[in-house]
């Protein structure tokens, strides 16, 4: 349905526009739809808009879910 990829906020201007680094590719991205964005934070971007701020707990939670699924000896 929608290509969206995570990237790191590199800089923010006064119009809520940011430069986001997607790992060697940068693009101008609107931050109008995330709360209190800050440089250095990770956001998930779709069609030029940041739609979600990724926090490290959520990222760890995903890795933990995966670990559980892999370790679970039952189905």
């Amino acid at each position: 349905m929608c290509v969206a990829v995570p990237g790191k906020i590199v800089s923010i201007d006064e119009f809520d526009m940011a430069v986001v680094d997607f790992g060697g590719t940068t693009r101008e991205v609107s931050l109008a739809m995330v709360e209190d964005p800050a440089t250095g934070e990770y956001v998930i971007v779709h069609a030029g808009f940041a739609l979600h701020k990724v926090n490290s707990e959520e990222a760890l939670e995903t890795i933990e879910l995966m670990r559980q699924a892999l370790d679970d000896s039952n189905f």
């Binding site: 739809m33 995330v34 739609l51 979600h52 990724v54 959520e58 939670e61 995903t62």
Partner: peptide
């Protein structure tokens, strides 16, 4: 297999229960 029908979130790094309230408001 367990006969359940629930909403589960296997994508917590991007998805939460409420979603992006600001975007929905817009």
């Amino acid at each position: 297999k367990e006969g359940r029908a629930e909403v589960e979130n296997a994508y917590p790094r991007a998805v939460d229960a409420q979603g992006n309230v600001g975007a929905m408001k817009m």
